[in-house]
């Protein structure tokens, strides 16, 4: 399990636009670099990130080789009600991780 950091405002108001920040530990190996033995290392990156709010997609991103290790993503969302946010990162070599956070409207 990769470590993640997810930052949400604590008690947002209804109708407020909030900023969500996510950070995940991942090497993002490009597939272009030679390893210590001179052989090109296999690509191992996160390909996509999605954020669902009450099972409805609110944000999606495609990630590519040029993105740095431990990718940091920041996006905004309009808060309409309380609910559950599910963040999913998936990528090469069957990498898939989902984290959930509860969002409570003040």
């Amino acid at each position: 399990m990769a470590r993640t950091l997810i930052n949400l405002p604590r008690n947002p108001k209804r109708g407020e636009v909030i900023e969500i920040r996510t950070l995940i530990q991942h090497g993002m190996e490009t597939g272009y670099r030679p390893g210590p033995n001179g052989v090109t290392q296999q690509r191992d990156i996160i390909r996509s990130f999605t954020c669902l709010f009450n099972n409805e997609e609110v944000f999606r991103a495609e990630l590519h080789q040029a993105i740095a290790a431990n990718p940091f993503l920041e996006f905004s969302m309009l808060v309409t009600e309380s609910g559950i946010l599910a963040f999913t990162w998936s990528g090469d070599n069957g990498f898939e991780q989902t984290e959930t956070r509860a969002l409570t409207v003040a």
Partner: peptide, 13 residues
Amino acid sequence: DDTANPGMLWVQE
């Protein structure tokens, strides 16, 4: 910012 500092991932670990 502790939520943007990638070093915090290692601290967590």
